[in-house]
Design a protein around this nucleic acid. Structure first.
Lengths: 155, 155
DNA sequence: AAAAGAATGTAGCTATGGCTACATTGATGC
DNA sequence: GCATCAATGTAGCCATAGCTACATTCTTTT
């Protein structure tokens, strides 16, 4: 690119750059959480459907998660690859032991987060929406704090 | 696919399918939030850097967000497309008015969430990590509830 | 048993969000 | 002024996550 005289050039020396990368770790953690969000949502949905109607089918998951059956299909393939579910063509989807553990932990956390938000006076519908987004980023420490706050309120 | 006799066939009629899609809305909302997360994180980072050293450069953002400069570059192009920032090749990045609004709202929410978690006894470092993930999913209602809880504690 | 309809699968598109490797430009030092 | 190094830009790869359109298979109905 040719030098353009009309383009105001910066003459002064560059300001010293902050070298701290402390915050970077927080963003990294958040990105990592995102990777497991899908697995947790699917595992929980599959567990619920299995409890309710005995099996989880692609259409049911699609309806429940608000995506098309195509997306479900591809995600299930990944979850199978990762040992969360078992599935065979044209058959229902089932959780592995690992999948059941994921679902159970996720469900527990979900319920605590919803209960906690509701205890703060957040309307039920809003609490459910917020919990769905927040829950995957709630560490064990924060979950414990939520539990403790709930217990204190009921004491 | 040929019928495989060894494959246990389901003989009974399919169970009735649950038709409720109530939960789907929650997942949709969460996916929507994800779309704005990046914009908020970048806007906040750019605002902070601009305050601290007068300008935000690609390297600084990369360091701070924990990604490579390539990722920053591409994201900045998108943010420019979306009217959040202005940028010219080889120059610093600046927020538009819209970008400043995003940054300010995001920063405020971030600080409230961190303060709230800390007030529950969550260790500072953990509070920061969790807040980073959670904040983008905190609705105005929940944020108000957090604020109220903080105010009550300081009363 | 054949037709119709529902469910599932597949091909291929878009967008985001990471990355490495390499090219170019800008800033600094000699 | 030129060489060097840092910063920025570009090409192109991969994975996730959504979609429409179409093909196949299964279930139900007639």
């Amino acid at each position: 690119m040719a030098m353009n005289a009309a383009m105001p050039r910066k003459v002064t020396t560059r300001k010293p750059r902050p070298t701290s990368v402390a915050e970077a770790e927080e963003f990294r953690q958040t990105r990592e959480d995102h990777a497991s969000e899908t697995a947790e949502d699917y595992a929980e949905a599959i567990a619920d459907l299995t409890d309710a109607v005995g099996e989880a089918r692609v259409v049911d998951l699609a309806k429940r998660l608000g995506v098309t059956h195509v997306t479900v299909n591809r995600t299930i393939a990944r979850l199978q690859r990762d040992g969360i579910v078992t599935s065979q063509p044209y058959r229902a989807i089932f959780l592995t032991d690992k999948g059941r553990r994921v679902a159970s932990a996720s469900k527990q956390r979900h319920e605590i987060v919803v209960a906690f938000l509701r205890s703060l006076g957040v309307p039920d519908h809003v609490a459910r929406i917020d919990a769905e987004g927040m829950e995957h980023h709630v560490s064990p420490e924060t979950l414990a704090a939520f539990k403790a706050a709930l217990a204190a309120r009921n004491r």
